[in-house]
């Protein structure tokens, strides 16, 4: 059986401003296939309560995109094989300058970008810059996505496609929506080589397995990781990931 992808998400600058680099190193060491690094935003429409409150702390800590780029840059030599994805809302990129932001992200060692409030209709400008910088733009598909949209999104996707398990914001849930199978099948029909990972609501081994049983190639774990990080520190949070990694 093919190895399944483990993709942790964490908010940069939390719990301390300088936690970012250490967490990336730990996530890389435990064998994460991709690492999603969240840039905290003041108005994060797709974030659930756990990530929202972590974002508020990170902003309070003084994190901004310049500091994040420096933090990632500083460990670049130690994590050359890590696949880092910047998870950010569109406005911070737009105001910073799309070209400048993506160039700096690439220089810092980033390989991917995920913008949760940028539907396919609005991606023309950023896709051109991504192409130029060789940064992969990761798209999301939702349970509400129509077959026509799934086809369009799958066609332009690279690396992997992020399937949101539920309508709603981020956050751990006890069950994973069981109706995702037909969506995954449709994606595979459009592009058999494209990996599909499920996120939003994966909180433990059980929900990870539920997701994979529906045909997903991997799981994204965000809020569950952040919750343990907040309560018991990064070691305990990484233990959850190790446990899931062993069992999938």
């Amino acid at each position: 059986m093919q190895k399944k992808l483990l993709i942790p998400f964490f908010s940069a600058g939390f719990p301390e401003l300088n936690s970012t680099a250490q967490i990336i190193l730990e996530l890389h060491k435990l064998g994460s296939d991709y690492i999603e690094i969240g840039l905290p935003h003041s108005d994060a429409l797709a974030d659930g309560p756990i990530i929202q409150s972590a974002s508020a702390v990170a902003l309070e800590n003084g994190l901004n995109i310049d500091i994040l780029f420096e933090q990632v840059s500083s460990i670049r030599e130690q994590i050359q094989t890590a696949k880092l994805i910047l998870f950010t809302y569109y406005n911070p990129l737009l105001v910073y300058g799309l070209a400048k932001a993506l160039q700096k992200w690439k220089q810092a060692g980033g390989m991917g970008l995920l913008v949760p409030d940028l539907p396919i209709e609005e991606t023309k400008e950023i896709l051109e810059i991504c192409k130029k910088e060789n940064i992969k733009l990761i798209f999301l598909i939702a349970p509400t996505s129509t077959p026509e949209r799934i086809k369009r999104i799958a066609e332009i996707s690279e690396e992997f496609l992020y399937l949101v398990s539920v309508t709603g914001v981020t956050g751990a849930r006890s069950l994973v929506n069981e109706s995702l199978k037909p969506i995954i099948e449709q994606i595979k029909q459009v592009k058999p080589s494209l990996k599909v990972v499920i996120g939003f609501g994966i909180s433990n081994v059980e929900t990870a397995k539920q997701a994979l049983n529906q045909g997903a190639d991997g799981v994204v774990i965000g809020s569950a990781f952040m919750k343990i990080l907040q309560e018991n520190g990064s070691k305990a949070a990484c233990n959850l990931l190790n446990e899931i990694k062993e069992q999938i």
């Binding site: 429409l45 996505s145 949209r149």
Partner: peptide
Amino acid sequence: LKGRFGNYGGQYVPETLMPA
């Protein structure tokens, strides 16, 4: 089609909402 007023407007929302 795109809901633009000059450069302004657009639809900057999560994919979940686009079909709605």
